[in-house]
Nucleic acid binder design. Structure first.
Lengths: 94, 94
DNA sequence: CTATTTTGGTTTATAATATAAACTAATTTA
DNA sequence: TAAATTAGTTTATATTATAAACCAAAATAG
């Protein structure tokens, strides 16, 4: 029987974000937006969900007086991502 | 920039079905239901979607007077599945 | 200057999707 | 012969994804 795929990660945008975050120290909102080619609104919502799950931490600061949002994957997030990938292998074969 | 994941395949149940169908000659509705642990209603709807996309062919016959629904992946379906897997590798790393 | 556009977002409304509930019809089984 | 089971379909609902509308500050154009 096929195992469940973590629904929080089984979303193109959220998976994309996690995929990007896993290979960098931290990333800015604008960079994630460019890389994922998503709308700011959508990205904002999905980042919140990842954050609420403890998969990432979001730091909201200011660069001068402009808002600066940076994201960083957590250990919990890395684990969830790895588990997701493992489960996925059951679906896509190897 | 991350590529788009075929939304028809990026669904746990439909991906599960395709994953099962790719390794068998054909499969019965009831078997797919067991393997995917899905409700009959949900499975029925998702099979129709895969069928409409030309990813599978559904054959509805009778075993005696009981309905017998069997599914088979198409060449187009195999190609779509393989493309999906390739794109996915961009997300999950190798 | 000051009006408009751009940047960097958030909030909220809507569109799309997944899923279950309700239903049909035939078939065992009690 | 009434009740439960099998094998599904159809439809309603809950969930999710996504964009539209919005806000505040800053840069740019006239």
């Amino acid at each position: 029987m096929l195992k469940e795929l973590d629904p929080l990660l089984h979303s193109q945008l959220r998976l994309g974000v996690m995929s990007l975050l896993i290979s960098v120290e931290s990333a800015e909102f604008t960079w994630l937006r460019e890389k994922t080619n998503s709308s700011a609104g959508n990205l904002s919502v999905q980042l919140d969900k990842l954050s609420e799950a403890g998969y990432i931490i979001i730091d909201k600061s200011f660069k001068g007086k402009k808002p600066l949002t940076t994201c960083k994957i957590t250990k919990h997030g890395i684990k969830a991502f790895e588990e997701y990938v493992n489960t996925l292998k059951q679906y896509i074969g190897k």
